[in-house]
């Protein structure tokens, strides 16, 4: 009966991995492009419109992230939530540690817009170490 069709949770995960790669790649490209273009734009509403581009990509990623977790079965949802908690704690810890020299020693600021992409990376690594080995 061997089939090549994937079960709904597996198909959702495969779709998410492809979408995540595309969206976060696009975010990096759009962010660099907007950063280069925005100083030349004079009208405030056009500047806001340009800034909305990368913001929209992060919202797409967040939407897809919640969607893939909802599409998982009972066991995988539990693992996902455990990995989310671990990754979120690690990112918060890293950001807070960075904040100490930032505040006390005038170290460069951590760009808050990178927190979600960093979380996505840490989550992916944590997933590979826990959920992926099952």
């Amino acid at each position: 009966m061997s089939q090549t069709k994937l079960s709904p949770p597996d198909a959702a995960m495969r779709r998410f991995l492809i979408v995540q790669f595309g969206v976060l790649g696009a975010f990096a490209v759009v962010m660099i492009a907007v950063e280069a273009v925005i100083p030349t734009v004079k009208t405030p509403w056009q500047r806001w419109l340009l800034a909305a581009g990368p913001a929209a990509l992060l919202l797409v990623w967040a939407w897809e992230f919640f969607r893939v977790i909802r599409a998982q079965d009972e066991m995988m949802q539990t693992i996902h939530l455990r990995v989310v908690a671990t990754a979120a704690c690690l990112v918060l810890l890293g950001a807070s540690l960075w904040g100490i020299p930032e505040r006390l020693l005038n170290a460069p600021e951590l760009p808050a817009s990178l927190l979600l992409p960093i979380f996505a990376f840490v989550y992916g690594a944590a997933w590979a170490m826990t959920g992926g080995r099952r």
């Binding site: 009966m1 061997s2 089939q3 069709k5 994937l6 079960s7 709904p8 949770p9 597996d10 995960m13 998982q72 079965d73 009972e74 066991m75 995988m76 959920g131 099952r134």
Partner: peptide, 26 residues
């Protein structure tokens, strides 16, 4: 029944990893 883990996962609408964990008693 000659099914793979992926076949069973598809019929139960769970992930292949879940089938693997169930079979292994994890």
């Amino acid at each position: 029944r000659g099914w793979t883990q992926a076949d069973l996962a598809l019929q139960l609408e769970v992930s292949r990893q879940t089938i693997n964990a169930l079979e292994a008693g994890r």
